[in-house]
C-alpha cells in the first residue's frame, strides 16, 4: 500500500517539476512540429498517394509518419525523466528510500506516459490539420491505439533511460537500445492507425489492438521485474 503511495508520489513529483519547468514538453512540442514540417518538405505537400484516388502522399503515409514523430519526440521526454534525478544528486537518492524499487519504476513510467500523451494530444490534431487528414470522427479509436502504443514505448523507454542515465553517451545509447525492442509496437500501432484512418474492410483492427495489448503486458512485466537492477550504481 505504501509502495503504491510511493509510485504516485514519484509520478506527482515528476509532473509537478515538468509543469514548472516545461523542459521536456517545450522541447518535444517544438521538435514534433519541426518533424511534421520536414516530412512535408521531403515528401511534397501535394504528391499523390497510392490509394484511394485523390489522396495525397502525406495523407496516405500519415499513420507511419505520425508514429515516427511520436517515437523521436518521445525519446526527449525519456531522457529528461532521469536527468532531473541526476541533477538532484543521482539515482542513489531514490535508492535511499525504503520500500520496493518497482514503485519508482511505475511512478516514473506513469509520469512519462502522461507527458507523452499530452504531446500526442497536440501532435495528432496538428498533423491532421497540416496534412488534411480527416480524423475527427475516428478520434475514439485513435485514442485507444495511441494509449496502447505509448505504454509499450514508455515501458521499455523508462527502463533504458534509467540504465543509461549515468553514461556520457546516453543520447546515443538510449535510442540504440530502445528502438530494436519497439519493432512490435511500431508494426502494431502503425497498422492499427492505418486501419482506423483508411478504413477496415476485413475487420482486422481488433486483432492488432489485442497484439499491442499483449506486447505491452510482456514488456511491462519484463521491465518491472528487472528494474531494481537497472538503477544500481
Amino acid at each position: 500500500m505504501s509502495d503504491l503511495r510511493r509510485a504516485v508520489g514519484v509520478a506527482r513529483k515528476d509532473l509537478l517539476i515538468e509543469r514548472r519547468s516545461k523542459a521536456a514538453f517545450n522541447a518535444m512540442a517544438f521538435f514534433a512540429a519541426l518533424v511534421l514540417f520536414i516530412f512535408s518538405f521531403a515528401l511534397g505537400p501535394e504528391a499523390p498517394g497510392l490509394s484511394p484516388a485523390g489522396q495525397t502522399l502525406l495523407q496516405y503515409l500519415w499513420p507511419g509518419l505520425l508514429w515516427v514523430a511520436i517515437f523521436f519526440t518521445g525519446i526527449l521526454a525519456l531522457g529528461r525523466s532521469f536527468q532531473l534525478e541526476m541533477d538532484s544528486g543521482g539515482l542513489q537518492a531514490l535508492r535511499l528510500y525504503p520500500g520496493d524499487l518497482k514503485a519508482i519504476y511505475l511512478g516514473k513510467l506513469a509520469a512519462n506516459l502522461v507527458v507523452l500523451l499530452a504531446m500526442e494530444l497536440l501532435l495528432i490534431p496538428l498533423s491532421a490539420v497540416l496534412y488534411n487528414v480527416d480524423l475527427w470522427t475516428k478520434l475514439p479509436g485513435l485514442l485507444g491505439v495511441t494509449v496502447l502504443g505509448s505504454i509499450g514505448f514508455v515501458a521499455v523507454g523508462t527502463f533504458y533511460a534509467a540504465l543509461t542515465a549515468n553514461l556520457r553517451a546516453r543520447e546515443v545509447m538510449l535510442p540504440l537500445l530502445l528502438f530494436p525492442t519497439q519493432v512490435p509496437i511500431v508494426v502494431g500501432a502503425v497498422r492499427a492507425t492505418a486501419l482506423i484512418v483508411h478504413g477496415d474492410p476485413m475487420g482486422e483492427l481488433n486483432v492488432w489492438l489485442q497484439m499491442l495489448a499483449l506486447v505491452d503486458v510482456v514488456l511491462l512485466t519484463v521491465c518491472t521485474l528487472t528494474f531494481e537492477f537497472a538503477i544500481e550504481e
Binding site: 533504458y160 530494436p180 510482456v218 519484463v222 528487472t226
Partner: peptide, 14 residues
C-alpha cells in the same frame, strides 16, 4: 535479458 526476451514478440510482429 530485455533484448533476448523481446526477440520472440519481435519475430511474430515482423
Amino acid at each position: 535479458i530485455i533484448g533476448f526476451a523481446t526477440l520472440p514478440i519481435v519475430y511474430f510482429s515482423v
